[in-house]
């Protein structure tokens, strides 16, 4: 059977993961993986790593103990590799509960940057839902609370700003996905003092480049990017072909890193949030934030290649 670059890389990562089992001397001999690069949140100057962790579908495993433990290992590998931002929503089934389970088992990592969403109509209901979410995560407060898919944003944003003023959360944001309602999002970004905006942006879905990403830079709004792999469909498509040799010029070892480096090299992007159920993949994703990032010319080359495939 022919081995793809992904297979080889996964074997290498697997071997690295097993290194501690070979003894302390061998483990010491392993070079420490590079820490992910970080970018500043414009409204505060605080930096967060360029790659975070999403939880859509992957962490919705119900009360399945084995799957919860597997999710915990993904989170462990995420924090060990230097990750900080985990994003979830009440819309994601049991994901918040699973995150809370994992954080407890991991001893509540101090580096966590907790991002969640409010997804309900009504101000009172919104506050109650956010409190439920906080209890599920079992944390003192969220770092970032976002209005999910613009749902009742006129109601929720004033609530979130007042909670921020009261110190009950640190940042306020709003989200969309799949390229929906960009016109309305643009108006909100232009008129409200948002800290964050979350949207879909990847090698194929690039509408955000036209107005939203430039506006985010202009207004000093941090950008979280969801669906970096089009829920896996993009990687399925790209994975049928070998990675181009010139990907090594930006320290890419996989199509996943190729896709992520394209996203996080955009100067307006603060953090991409791929979701995964696999420890090797979370390490690979964080690895995209280490090493060289593409410049403008390389970004154009990457996009042109994907457009041809």
């Amino acid at each position: 059977m022919t081995k793809t670059p992904n297979d080889i890389r996964r074997r290498l990562l697997g071997a690295l993961a097993a290194a501690p089992l070979l003894g302390p001397a061998m483990a010491r001999a392993q070079p420490q993986p590079a820490r992910p690069a970080a970018r500043a949140i414009p409204s505060s100057g605080e930096t967060i790593p360029l790659v975070g962790l999403g939880s859509w579908i992957t962490f919705n495993v119900g009360d399945d103990r084995a799957a919860r433990d597997a999710s915990t290992e993904v989170m462990r590998a995420f924090f060990q590799a230097g990750g900080r931002l985990i994003d979830s929503s009440p819309m994601y089934g049991s994901a918040q509960d699973v995150i809370g389970y994992g954080l407890k088992k991991l001893g509540r990592p101090a580096d966590l940057f907790a991002a969640d969403k409010v997804w309900i109509s009504g101000s009172g209901e919104g506050r109650a839902q956010m409190e439920r979410s906080r209890r599920l995560w079992d944390i003192p407060r969220f770092d970032l609370m976002q209005v999910h898919n613009l749902l009742s944003w006129q109601t929720h944003l004033p609530t979130l700003f007042s909670m921020k003023a009261a110190g009950q959360l640190r940042y306020v944001g709003i989200t969309t996905s799949h390229g929906r309602r960009h016109d309305e999002l643009e108006k909100i970004m232009a008129s409200r003092p948002l800290d964050f905006v979350q949207l879909t942006y990847n090698l194929v879905d690039r509408e955000a480049e036209q107005r939203l990403l430039p506006l985010a830079r202009e207004r000093g709004i941090a950008v979280i990017v969801n669906r970096p792999f089009q829920q896996g469909a993009l990687l399925d498509r790209l994975g049928r072909r070998p990675l181009p040799p010139w990907a090594a010029e930006i320290d890419c070892t996989s199509w996943a890193q190729f896709a992520l480096k394209f996203i996080i090299s955009h100067p307006a992007v603060t953090c991409a949030i791929p979701a995964t159920t696999r420890v090797d993949h979370v390490r690979e994703n964080l690895g995209a934030a280490a090493g060289r990032l593409p410049d403008q010319a390389m970004r154009a080359r990457m996009a042109a290649l994907v457009a041809r495939l």
């Binding site: 579908i57 495993v61 119900g62 089934g93």
Partner: peptide, 12 residues
């Protein structure tokens, strides 16, 4: 609208 993976679904 699918909230879960096939593996999670069948595991139920």
């Amino acid at each position: 609208l699918l909230l879960f993976s096939p593996r999670t679904y069948y595991r139920q």
